[in-house]
Design a protein around this nucleic acid. Structure first.
Lengths: 340, 340
DNA sequence: GTGAAAGCGCTAACAT
DNA sequence: ATGTTAGCGCTTTCAC
């Protein structure tokens, strides 16, 4: 194992000063061609790589973004993450990733660990526990320390920062309207993530669409909980005892469990029951029948968030207004909904 | 936005020297109680956090692990990643993640970018392109620079380093034996990732199991390709024209597409056809019927890889033998295979 | 008990 | 064209 080459060593071996080496390697015109070439070749020979840590210390910037994701096993977050990583890389930034596991404590701990010079800014989606407890002090503190934050998907109006969101409300109105156009009148609203801000917005969209179409809200067709087990239990009851012709699922668990139970009961999809759900990733296509989805363009969300953060980091403006970008969803009609 | 507190500033404001502040904050017994308390309280007031970059420079260690993952949208890798992140965090390490996107060039570029002091070691799974081209020079170089690597899942025998793998061969023998026990005799072998080392091992297991049970290999029941479109095309042909009673899928695309096409053709699963596939994540449970899988314990793999790397980083032994850990898989019987 | 000084590896303003 | 110096923020040895 060769010892790592440093400017100092190279300088000594070549009998020049450290600054000469530094300048030669950065191709400064101050240095004469012959010495430049000599130094550059020697450096290559020694496999010299400038120590990034030293450069970071000097620049007081790390070109590194801290990303905090509630749960990487959720394909939506995986997509957003890959968008962030892609954009960051293009712009020459690295990405330190932490998974909050929906825990407020881990979120706070992570931000504390990284906000000491390790990263230049954060991109994050608020953990479930944080949203439940409405505890946002840690975000505000970080921002007041001059570290910019970009929030995506699960945001808080209480925190002043850049945001990238999905038009959850409009998407839902649109999706439920689509079900109604297909002839559905008894549309169930199902969610197992009711504690999240996005679920609330989506549920409001459902109400709006029904109202607009003069369809009465039937509470018996609505399951809103944040407990998957309770959800499954109530879902079974709903499928067994209620008559429905449409399902609007606010999360993947809700829509897929509903399809599974309906198929088990012998209900024909889409002939007797149309299903639309929020979902990401490749799996909705693999179901039989494939699931019609509201797709959230996670990669774009990630790219946009990274772009926003990097722009902020690289702008010298102290006065930089906070922006909120909305990424439109797309209704992907597959085989769980009838064709018009 | 408050200016960041540094030792120097605190020292000046308190009319003491930098080293006194440093010692006081690290609770050194050299400093008298009163000054210690004064300094510590003032530091807390100013929200002082020691600059990590400076500490890294001093220690010539970053407590950061570089992770390179071929594709985070694959739930297996997402699981491994979450295992790595969890263990790293417990041990006080951060994780810089890059996605190679199955590209050799990106893999090389990433390793080059990070091996300049940014990270202490790597955990990675080799990209598809790298495996195809059998190009491993960059790994060897990094190792010769003294930066340890732990490879997982997709590894190369050519590279000398710690490894964490799955017992792909044995798992396959076991899974195919299970199908045979269920009475299957015409078992299809399906894969759309045939270029990967793991697929080759899994295919060998299939052959072994058939041989052991004196079942002749029927080439018409085997699809091995690395092109999903070609796979789908050949799969349709196979389902339409061959008689099969079992399917062994080496990747998620293969098993799920096979189930989808079989259901479409009216074949009853599991009554007429049993399906087992390698798969991770929650989705195999959501299919109808739910898919019986060989589950790879991705989280454990990640945890083990992180543990290995950190042990290596923290051991002063120059002579540290390379280890290969095998994580056993588990056959999860669900509804796509008959019960005995 | 406190402080001065050196040094981690690098850059850049300022000599020579 | 090359070298000297200072400094990024911190720790640590050595003086006082």
């Amino acid at each position: 194992m060769k010892p790592k080459a440093t400017l100092k060593q190279i300088a000594k071996e070549l009998n020049v000063s450290v600054s000469t080496v530094s300048k030669a390697l950065s191709n400064s015109p101050e240095i004469s061609e012959p010495t430049k070439i000599k130094i550059q070749e020697f450096a290559k020979l020694k496999n010299y790589k400038p120590n990034n840590i030293a450069i970071n210390l000097k620049n007081r910037s790390t070109k590194t973004i801290g990303v905090i994701i509630p749960n990487i096993l959720n394909p939506f977050f995986a997509k957003v993450f890959s968008g962030i990583e892609k954009m960051a890389n293009e712009k020459g930034y690295n990405v330190i990733t932490c998974i909050s596991n929906e825990s407020l404590k881990k979120e706070i701990h992570t931000m504390d660990m990284l906000s000491n010079g390790t990263i230049d800014g954060f991109i994050l989606s608020i953990s479930e526990e944080t949203q439940k407890q409405q505890e946002f002090k840690h975000f505000k503190e970080i921002i007041s320390e001059g570290i910019p934050i970009v929030m995506f998907d699960r945001i808080s109006d209480e925190v002043n920062c850049d945001k990238v969101i999905v038009d959850d409300f409009d998407s839902s109105v649109n999706a439920v309207n689509h079900l109604i156009t297909l002839g559905c009148r008894k549309i169930a609203l199902l969610t197992s993530i009711d504690n999240l801000s996005v679920a609330k917005l989506r549920a409001q969209g459902y109400v709006k669409a029904l109202n607009d179409n003069d369809i009465a809200i039937n509470k018996d067709l609505i399951i809103r909980t944040d407990n998957p087990d309770e959800f499954d239990f109530r879902l079974k009851d709903l499928i067994d005892n209620q008559e429905i012709d449409g399902i609007f699922g606010l999360d993947e668990h809700a829509s897929t469990m509903a399809m599974k139970m309906a198929i088990k009961k012998g209900i024909k999809i889409p002939e007797e029951l149309s299903v639309i759900g929020f979902a990401d990733g490749v799996w909705s296509r693999r179901l039989t029948p494939s699931l019609s989805t509201i797709s959230q363009h996670g990669i774009e969300i990630g790219e946009e968030a990274a772009k926003m953060l990097i722009e902020k980091l690289e702008s010298k403006d102290e006065e930089y207004a906070y922006r909120t970008t909305v990424i439109k969803t797309e209704l992907r009609q597959r085989d769980s909904t009838r064709k018009l």
